[in-house]
């Protein structure tokens, strides 16, 4: 009972600390973000698309793989709001169900690139010397390979399968293998900027272990640029997944995904533009939401731009 009260106290202070004279960077950033309408637009979009990814049945009761060939390629109408595609699938339902693959790939890729890149970056930046040289050159090796071609090679190398999550993980792996060095570079440079600060030197002089210095002084102060880039990258990775699917390498047809649908619709673009328009719209809105959120977070974390 008392323990719960004690552990509760520190977490509630920064949240309710609006009237307090000194605000932490996080609460200050939160105040700035709250007053930005773009923050609310992008957050609402992200919440909607995330709900779509987790509970598609909230938005539609139509089965996205139910083919009504009689109505193939029909234009948007009262029965099928977005029309039907060449297989007679309901495009609205497919747009809803397609969110899962895109959001999953974007989210997992961002989490893994941030983790791998962040750890390598902190290590290289904090330890320096030979460790830094070796890790940086290793990053260069992966960084020098063009992202799209490298991802295609990884995807072709991995064995083919029909399992949904395995296919998604393959795409994630391909993007992580080639995407971590940019995160590592970013983290390394911000760690190098934070390291010579007085508070870090003071902590070391007081005998704090390297692990403690890194955890409670370096990482919290070097994290801001990484958060911004991670949010923007999430949008970029969703776009990359769609491109891979478009090339016929990423997700494959029985899987419902925006990239797969766009790829199939491009052929009939002149006669049935609605087949291309709606999945592209959903994809673009998702990417837009994450990039916009990244912009807002950057403006909030970096007071120089105000």
């Amino acid at each position: 009972m008392t323990e719960a009260a004690v552990s509760e106290a520190p977490t509630s202070t920064p949240e309710g600390g609006d009237s307090a004279p000194a605000r932490s960077l996080a609460s200050d950033a939160w105040r700035t973000m709250r007053s930005n309408p773009l923050f609310w637009v992008s957050s609402v979009l992200i919440v909607i698309f995330t709900l779509m990814a987790i509970f598609p049945s909230l938005f539609t009761s139509t089965n996205p793989t139910e083919a009504i060939l009689r109505d193939a390629r029909v234009r948007p109408n009262a029965d099928a709001w977005f029309g039907r595609d060449i297989q007679g699938y309901d495009i609205y339902a497919r747009c809803i169900y397609g969110a899962r693959a895109s959001i999953l790939v974007g989210l997992l890729t961002t989490v893994f690139t941030t983790l791998v890149g962040g750890i390598v970056g902190v290590f290289a930046g904090y330890v320096g010397g030979w460790t830094d040289t070796i890790l940086s050159r290793l990053g260069d090796v992966f960084f020098a390979i063009p992202l799209l071609l490298g991802a295609v090679i990884v995807l072709v190398t991995l064995p083919a399968t029909d399992n949904y999550f395995y296919i998604v993980l393959k795409v994630v792996l391909a993007l992580v293998v080639l995407g971590w060095p940019s995160m590592a570079r970013l983290m390394r440079s911000s760690v190098i900027q934070v390291k010579p600060n007085d508070y870090v030197q003071a902590a070391r002089a007081l005998g704090a272990s390297p692990w403690r210095v890194v955890r409670s002084h370096i990482v919290p102060n070097a994290l801001a640029p990484m958060i911004v880039v991670a949010t923007i990258n999430l949008g970029a990775y969703i776009s990359a997944e769609a491109t891979l699917s478009y090339l016929g390498i990423g997700l494959q047809p029985p899987t419902v995904s925006w990239g797969v649908d766009i790829s199939a619709a491009v052929v009939g673009m002149r006669t049935t533009p609605h087949m291309l328009f709606f999945p592209s719209l959903f994809l673009s809105l998702t990417v837009l939401a994450f990039i916009m959120l990244g912009d807002v977070v950057r403006d909030a974390l970096d007071p120089k731009n105000r």
Binding site: V266, S280, S284, L285
Partner: peptide
Amino acid sequence: TLVLISIPIFVIGNV
């Protein structure tokens, strides 16, 4: 520029 960044290149190219 935001709109341009969020539309995938294969859609821009085909359109």
